[in-house]
Amino acid sequence: MEDLSQAAKKVAAFVQTLTTTGGMRLKYRITAGAGASDPDGLERRDIYVELAGPDAPQLTERNGEGLRALEHIAAKILRLEPEEHDRISFDANGFKAERARDLRESAEDAAERVRETNRPYSFPPMSSRERRMLHMALSEQTDLRTESSGEGRDRFVVLYPADYQGTVRAPRRDDRAGFGRGRGGRGGGGRSGGGRGGYGRRY
């Protein structure tokens, strides 16, 4: 990101397009620089957009599909490389902050479980951003390592003991009905906020 204040202006112009031309009833606060940083360190964000207002709830529907769309477009407007996309982050009514807490909790549960069993643990499929947040949440556990497996919307994080030999492969498509259930329903912190329990298959 070449110039932070320039980038923040572009993001502000994008949000204003939504609220003026797009007619969306949103209140917004844009923070850039140190004030935007993620206190949990799961995102490396430089620009943080917090949305509220009458139309904010529809951005968090379908597991935050609208927020992911805004983040993706904003990252593209800023010409960020894919691995830099978490430098810009959108939230609405604290939805993502809550998801981040859930992810941290499921990361902690999974770490405990892998240490107990000495077996890999597969998280449910998640969006690229949430997978990155999991990698970040577990990056300091030197006795464990994370990798992603599977393709596209079914891509998921696997947590391994650091010295584990072998790789957990994605279940075949026909196995999907059983996917997740057989894993004891753990790691599914998103079950709290009723109606948006499922993970982001539709990213």
């Binding site: 797009g22 609208g66 993706h72 477009i73 894919p82």
Partner: peptide
Amino acid sequence: GKVIGKQGRTARSLRTILGAASMKL
């Protein structure tokens, strides 16, 4: 390519935003 994106993700995001903005119309 800039408005379609890898695996159509930018196009899909544009449609999602269009859907959100036009919902009450």
